[in-house]
């Protein structure tokens, strides 16, 4: 009787103080082990997370601003135009109708006709020698059509083609455009993009290595647990799962760190960047990342964590091999 009572007490004790139910399944156990690892080794985990997060911060910033930057290439020159100078013989009426005709051509978004008088007025306004011009008595300026190309024609090659085809027209005297500026901008942008991606690639790789190394160390630290579990009949999947979960956890938390760093950095440089682009009359604006962009970074970081741990566990270890195999 007394025996039964103690037995019952033990049972209630067990139900009161045993860990939560989910930690007693294969997956739950693995997850609980990963959390325990983070908790027990707060400082080391913190350092790992910071290294991982900082490595991933630049790739995250590039990812976040990729949209804005991609637009920058075209956006900045969206307001750019070719100036088509008509020959002096073309009168206002013909000029205006030519502007209309050009609209029908491919690659042209809109056109606007600047009559000789308007050209003179603009010149006077912008230039000190306007009055001198007026003194000449007759207007030396030709009529012009401002041609705004389609956005997809804004590459250097497209513009060149458009300019050449416009120049063929008999009533057109000359087509003016600063191709060097476009080329230079595009070269700078594509170089920046390349450097950005290469850097991002290296940093992502280093994040992967950080996780791999951490998991390898963790494997050594856990050798008693691994060996005992193997003795008790654990399969490889049971041994490896906590380590993969740890990798995933590091990845996810490191991804959070990267997102936070990226958000802070972007909000810091947003104002000066927008001011700068304002100086160039550019419509470019550094946009704050959306929730789905943050989610993408977290997903990628988690995958990196899993990948890093799988890669580091692929190297054979005495603590994971079946018993009786030759030690490595």
């Amino acid at each position: 009787m007394a025996n039964r009572r103690t037995s019952e007490t033990a049972l209630t004790n067990a139900s009161l103080a045993a860990g939560p139910k989910w930690t007693y399944t294969h997956r739950g156990y693995a997850l609980a082990q990963s959390f325990r690892q983070l908790r027990q080794r707060k400082f080391a985990s913190f350092i790992t997370l910071m290294v991982f997060g900082i490595s991933l911060a630049l790739p995250a910033i590039i990812l976040f601003s990729a949209g804005s930057l991609a637009k920058l290439g075209n956006h900045n020159i969206e307001q750019e135009s070719l100036t088509v100078y008509l020959s002096m013989q073309v009168n206002d009426l013909d000029g205006a109708s030519l502007a209309q005709q050009l609209l029908l051509r491919e690659g042209i978004d809109r056109t606007s006709y600047v009559s000789r008088d308007e050209a003179l007025a603009m010149f006077k306004e912008q230039s000190d020698i306007g009055d001198a011009l007026a003194a000449l008595g007759n207007n030396p300026l030709p009529g012009a059509i401002i041609v705004y190309p389609d956005v997809d024609m804004l590459g250097a090659v497209g513009l060149k083609q458009l300019a050449n085809s416009l120049a063929m027209s008999p009533s057109i005297d000359r087509v003016q455009f600063d191709f060097r500026w476009v080329k230079r901008l595009q070269a700078v942008l594509s170089l920046a993009r390349l450097v950005g991606w290469v850097l991002a690639g290296f940093l992502t790789l280093s994040a992967l290595l950080v996780i791999g190394n951490t998991i390898r160390l963790e494997l050594l630290r856990k050798q008693t647990e691994l060996d005992v579990s193997r003795l008790l009949g654990a399969k490889r999947s049971f041994l490896v799962r906590p380590l993969v979960y740890t990798g995933a956890l590091y990845g996810f938390l490191g991804g959070l760190v990267a997102c936070v760093i990226a958000l802070i950095t972007i909000s810091w440089i947003k104002t000066p960047a927008d001011q700068l682009s304002g100086l160039y009359q550019s419509a470019f604006q550094l946009e704050m990342p959306t929730a789905s962009q943050c989610f993408t970074v977290l997903l990628i970081a988690t995958c990196l964590g899993v990948l890093g741990s799988i890669v580091s566990l692929a190297r054979p270890s005495n603590h994971l091999l079946p018993f009786g195999t030759k030690p490595v």
Partner: peptide, 27 residues
């Protein structure tokens, strides 16, 4: 408790079974 429960977790036992068996073994 968790030391004794380990073989049962590995063996895939249910939570209630684990509690009962561990308590019985420790008893």
């Amino acid at each position: 408790f968790d030391n004794v429960a380990l073989p049962l977790i590995i063996g895939g036992y249910r939570y209630n079974d684990i509690k009962k068996r561990v308590a019985a073994a420790l008893e």
